[in-house]
Nucleic acid binder design. Structure first.
Length: 461
RNA sequence: UCCUCAGUAGCUCAGCUGGUUAGAGCGGCGGACUGUUAAUCCGUAGGUCGAAGGUUCGAAUCCUUCCUGGGGAGCCA
């Protein structure tokens, strides 16, 4: 008999024999009859297996405890109890793997996220994490679908980079040297010319620069891969290893860039509501009562589009005591961004045209000589979910900026050549995948939306 | 990295102005119950009080350092 998944069985007609395989979530009952909630990961819902206690060997039944893995053959019947349409009247039970109830850490009761994080290898077996990781999958799939349907090419930019000019943060060194006995040069420094790549290499902090190379020929590309930042960041919104989506588009200006950012994020939220409703409903009930309303609200409203200068004006006029002063030229603090998004506009906010001095070298310089065409997209409760810009395509302006900032020009020769040969206006941004998942699931800590989080002093599993 | 709060049973916590044998709920185990939905009821086991020093006749409780975790800030996705 072929195995069927719980998801299919829940909506299928009773009156036939079926085979399911899955893990026991709970078991209850009396001496006569036992009810087992079985889950196989295909859905948040469990199928109820009804066991006539007299019909089975006692030693076998003793092994059916929370966490055990079973195969159950039986008739799919209309449920006599409330709470489910169908259930399985067990005829044959095979125990694949028992789970000692005195040792198995997951209980019928709810657990704290902090505890579950310590048993990340088992937390997939909870309703919450099952929902989160099904949604995470759906979002990854939807991202590829969105871009593919619109003619973007998925470009694989390198994970090991030979450039430390990406400028997005501290990097993890990649080396094959024995750290206790690294080759030395004449001056006593480490001789990287004898390392694997013959130079210093690091894990990428962004695929943007390489992505631009692709866009300036393929037209529209996107990357979607792991990204590494060795910053000592200890917050519920930062990971040392995370996934980022970076679209890069030739001939897009800052407005086209904003249109794409808004359309993409709305598409993904719509996709979740259309395809993951069971899971969202569970999260709405158990994690965040405002989740589904908030998702719908974002879809129903245009994102606010303001410049940095307008944002500063709003903040200056606000009747609020700021912990950090507001002023043109200063970067916006978390409290300022939260005010704009959660209190003033009450919807996602896109801020453009930041002061040149607080943004990266590659951003398109405005004619005012003071600002650049940066783009930050701020989401309620998450903060910055997207950072991007129109790119500086003029060779001279870009080179001047690189010089001003004292950046290693020689490492960027290939980047500069695209401005030398057939340069084109273009734009792009980076969308933090885990931050998107935070927003879509209502989870509060980024460590709970990636299977095995990597953070400072933490790389277990 | 800075600020702040917290580490007591498998889990969630109470006990903390120092004082005899450290408690509860849930979970586990045993029992009761003809169909339960985080079932219910009765009973029961379970703890080097995060670690190391120190103060004291006496420390879960006070002090110091360290470790771990939460929240806030910075860095950013």
């Amino acid at each position: 008999m072929p195995r069927e998944k719980v998801k299919q069985l829940m909506t299928s007609e009773p009156g036939r024999d079926v085979l399911v395989k899955g893990w026991v979530r709970t078991r209850r009952g009396s001496k006569q009859v036992s009810f087992v909630a079985l889950n196989d990961g295909s859905t948040i819902n469990n199928i109820q297996v009804v066991i006539d206690m007299q019909a089975f060997d006692e030693d076998k039944l003793r092994l059916i405890t929370t966490g055990a893995c079973l195969a159950v053959e039986g008739e799919l019947v209309k449920s006599e109890g409330r709470g489910q349409k169908v259930e399985i009247q067990a005829k044959k039970i095979e125990i694949y793997g028992p789970a000692n109830p005195e040792k198995y850490p997951l209980q019928k009761k709810g657990h704290s996220m902090e505890f579950l994080r310590e048993i990340a290898h088992l937390r997939f077996r909870t309703n919450t994490f099952g929902a989160v990781f099904r949604i995470r999958h759906a979002m990854a799939y939807a991202i590829h679908k969105y871009f593919n349907d619109r003619g973007f090419y998925y470009l694989h930019t390198p994970i090991i980079t030979g450039s430390d000019a990406e400028g997005a943060g501290e990097m993890f060194r990649v080396t094959t040297f024995d750290l206790n006995d690294a080759p030395r040069d004449k001056n006593g420094g480490v001789d990287y010319s004898r390392d694997f790549f013959g130079k210093e290499t690091n894990l990428t902090v962004s695929g943007q620069l390489e992505g631009e190379m692709g866009a300036l020929s393929l037209g529209e590309i996107y990357t979607f891969g792991p990204t590494f930042r060795a910053e000592n960041s200890n917050t519920p919104r930062h990971l040392a290893e995370f996934w980022m989506i970076e679209p890069e588009m030739a001939f897009y200006d800052i407005d086209d860039n904003m249109d794409l950012a808004e359309d993409l994020t709305k598409y993904l939220i719509t996709y979740a509501l259309d395809n993951c409703y069971d899971d969202l409903e569970f999260l709405n009930n158990m994690i965040d009562k405002g989740l589904i309303d908030r998702l719908r609200f974002v879809l129903d409203n245009e994102y606010a589009r303001i410049t940095y200068t307008q944002a500063v004006d709003v903040l200056l006029k606000a009747d609020k005591q700021w912990e950090f002063p507001v002023g043109w030229g200063k970067d916006l603090q978390a409290e300022h961004e939260r005010y704009l998004v959660e209190q003033y506009y009450k919807r996602p906010v896109m801020i453009t045209d930041y002061p040149m001095d607080i943004k990266a070298f590659y951003m398109k310089q405005n004619d005012d000589g003071k600002t650049v065409r940066a783009l930050d997209v701020l989401f309620p409760f998450i903060g910055e979910i997207i950072g991007g810009s129109q790119r500086e395509e003029e060779y001279d302006k870009l080179e001047r900026r690189i010089k001003e900032l004292g950046m290693p020009r020689e490492q960027l020769w290939w980047f500069m050549e695209t401005r030398k040969f057939g340069t084109a206006p273009h734009s792009g941004f980076g969308l933090g995948f885990e931050r998107l998942i935070l927003f879509v699931t209502g989870m509060k800590n980024i460590r709970d939306v990636i299977p095995f989080p990597r953070t400072p002093r933490s790389a277990e599993f």
